[in-house]
């Protein structure tokens, strides 16, 4: 039987709350799981979490809006975060930034129309000895040059094309 996505989301959330201790302290891990599987944290998801943890939805929203890795809006399947902090800045992050914008046809803060990539700034990602550094989702790339930008993007485009990555579910 086909379970509607909202029902599945609810069941998932119930499971995640349980496996993370069942109380308020499970909130952050649960939000991280929702985002991982469903690509973003919707109003509906926040409402379900609030109901199950017996807190106000505004509380949940307050937490989501606080952390830069949690997001309500749709972002790209691959989120690119380029470090803008000083060591990477000195190592040439401006040119890498420009090349990213050129290759993707978007500016920082935007998502490509096909929903594949979004481009954001990060603060120091702990790779300062090998700047410029960027993250693509959880993967880290260092000593990035404008030329390497193209290769990195090509790598992820290929993964999408051969469907190595499952499309996230809309809800």
């Amino acid at each position: 039987m086909l379970v509607p996505v909202q029902e599945r989301l609810r069941q998932d959330i119930e499971g995640w709350i349980k496996s993370n201790g069942g109380d308020r302290s499970s909130l952050l891990p649960v939000l991280q799981e929702v985002q991982k599987k469903y690509s973003r944290i919707s109003d509906y998801a926040m409402q379900v979490i609030a109901d199950l943890l017996d807190i106000h939805p505004v509380e949940v929203h307050g937490v989501v809006s606080f952390y830069s890795f949690l997001k309500e809006a749709h972002k790209g399947r691959f989120e690119i975060r380029l470090c803008r902090t000083i060591s990477c800045d000195m190592a040439g992050r401006d040119r890498v930034a420009r090349q990213l914008e050129n290759e993707l046809g978007i500016t920082f803060g935007e998502t490509t129309p096909d929903g594949r990539f979004s481009l954001e700034w990060a603060n120091c990602v702990g790779m300062c000895d090998q700047g410029p550094a960027l993250l693509v989702n959880e993967q880290v790339f260092t000593c990035v040059t404008p030329e390497k930008v193209h290769d990195i993007l090509a790598h992820f485009k290929k993964m999408m094309d051969i469907n190595v990555f499952q499309q996230a579910e809309e809800h």
Partner: peptide, 18 residues
């Protein structure tokens, strides 16, 4: 989840508590 201030020990605990 991407917040520098959470390295401060009391902010870290707040974060752990959800």
């Amino acid at each position: 989840a991407g917040a520098y201030v959470c390295g401060e020990e009391t902010a870290l605990i707040e974060s752990l508590e959800g």
